[in-house]
Design a binder for these strands. Structure first.
Lengths: 105, 105
DNA sequence: GCTTCATACCTCGTTATACAAAGTATTATG
DNA sequence: CATAATACTTTGTATAACGAGGTATGAAGC
């Protein structure tokens, strides 16, 4: 998928995933893969960014004798999703404009 | 509007505008303004990029004794719009996923 | 026993891009 | 005469995706 287009979507996709259930890096990558591909070198900086703005929190848990860093969405994160959805109407207008150019008039 | 989200839309908006009619920098900024804000320092590099990949061409014309650089879309540019619209289905799935997180289930 | 794959985390360097700020120049308006 | 509008351009900064590389453990295959 178009790299530029992804930039505005990835952070929100990660938040949407964590809104459904708490999760950890490796699982997020695999769960999102059918929808949108995220590489490790993309995801881990995203998690850091989201932590920095307190949109998520983290707790290390032991699973099969190994550490896993689980992430949970916060109210700040939920607000980010809401803001994004609120802005989406404008994007739809833009898409309408672009599609309108296809069937020349 | 979300800066990151814009990145994937601006180039295509400029192409869509030029598909409707040939135009020049200053007019493109003003015509797109109600839909999406583009500053001069954003638009001129975009026009350069689009020229480099031959998605547009340019012809200088004189208007009121002054030069204006008019830009015209090419078939390469029209194909770019078509490719973008074709990819949009995937983006809609992603939005569905994000909106699905809002009404928790 | 050894290799390969899956799991799980992280960082560095490169590339792409939006945009503020500044610069240049002309014409119109107050 | 100054200010705004028209019109183009470049420089510097910040943000972000991602390939490539690094570390470490457990399980499966040969």
């Amino acid at each position: 998928m178009n790299t530029q287009l992804k930039k505005g979507l990835l952070d929100i996709c990660v938040l949407a995933e964590l809104e459904r259930k708490e999760s950890y890096g490796y699982a997020i990558i695999n769960d999102l893969a059918p929808l949108i591909e995220v590489s490790e070198s993309t995801l881990y900086p995203i998690l850091k960014r989201l932590l920095a703005k307190k949109a998520i929190t983290t707790k290390s848990k032991i699973h099969n004798n190994r550490f896993r860093k689980y992430y949970q969405i916060t109210d700040v994160g939920r607000q980010e999703i809401a803001d994004f959805v609120g802005e989406w109407g404008q994007v739809e207008k833009i898409i309408g404009f672009i599609k309108g150019a296809e069937i020349d008039e």
